[in-house]
């Protein structure tokens, strides 16, 4: 074993009861294994240096969506942001941009939870379908229509990357619109007509001016920018072709 390398982590600290504004605190920790990620570094700090550092995490395999933070200014899942890509430079870890901060690296994402509900993210049928009839028939090609939009893990990286959301928090935002599209183009769903009023609202798809950064930062290969532009087309078609829409 060679002497253990060390790496410097600068993490945002903020306790609303004590601090007026966030500050960066510097920690130097052992970088003992090349497989270590930023989340491992935070866990080391919390476990062995300073137990008061607060952040969210769970699955550490890039699927639960808890551990999104700004890593050197870029929104990332800290569970797959490797230390070796930064060492020997220090790494700055901050809470996701564009959200109110509750504490340290923990953001308040209730706004998204309300928006998620607003777009009615469930299968809407005009008539209830009895279970006894069995499963719907759906071809792989039909699944391919919505597959990528169903991969959203609600990690909020796209909201942190979206300057439109940063300037106007009323904007429905990338993930919510991608999930609306996930249901709108599902062959089992008949709810387009119910979702379009929310999507076509002033704070809906038309607020997007196509920066495209949401799709760049998405860790799951979702292209919310595409969902938004396609939904713009949907709302337009509905406006110009009153008889031509399906709902």
């Amino acid at each position: 074993m060679t002497a253990t390398k060390r790496i410097t982590i600068k993490a945002t600290r903020f306790d609303p009861d004590k601090d007026e504004k966030p500050r960066l605190q510097t920690y130097e920790i052992p970088f003992s294994d090349d497989s270590m990620v930023v989340l491992d570094a935070l866990n080391y700090i919390k476990g062995h240096v300073d137990g008061s550092l607060s952040y969210r995490w769970s699955c550490r395999m890039g699927i639960c969506g808890s551990c999104g933070m700004m890593v050197d200014g870029v929104p990332k899942l800290t569970c797959n942001a490797f230390l070796r890509d930064h060492w020997p430079r220090p790494i700055t870890v901050e809470p996701l941009n564009n959200f109110p901060v509750i504490r340290d690296l923990v953001i308040d994402m209730d706004d998204f939870m309300h928006k998620l509900k607003a777009i009615k993210p469930w299968v809407i049928r005009k008539q209830p379908v009895p279970l006894g009839g069995g499963a719907f028939v759906q071809t792989t090609a039909q699944i391919d229509e919505f597959r990528q939009f169903s991969q959203c893990i609600n990690c909020m990286l796209c909201y942190a990357a979206c300057p439109v959301y940063g300037l106007n928090n009323e904007f429905l935002g990338p993930a919510a619109i991608a999930l609306a599209r996930r249901y709108n183009v599902d062959s089992r769903d008949e709810g387009l007509g119910q979702r379009l009023p929310v999507l076509a609202d002033a704070e809906g798809v038309w607020e997007c001016s196509f920066v495209g950064e949401c799709s760049v930062v998405c860790p799951k290969g979702v292209d919310p920018a595409k969902a938004i532009q396609q939904t713009k087309l949907d709302t337009t078609m509905r406006f110009v072709l009153p008889f031509g829409n399906r709902d």
Binding site: V211, G212, E213, V216
Partner: peptide, 9 residues
């Protein structure tokens, strides 16, 4: 100015 995508946008 922080990201090239933002800049070109």
């Amino acid at each position: 100015t922080r990201r090239s995508n933002y800049f070109w946008y």
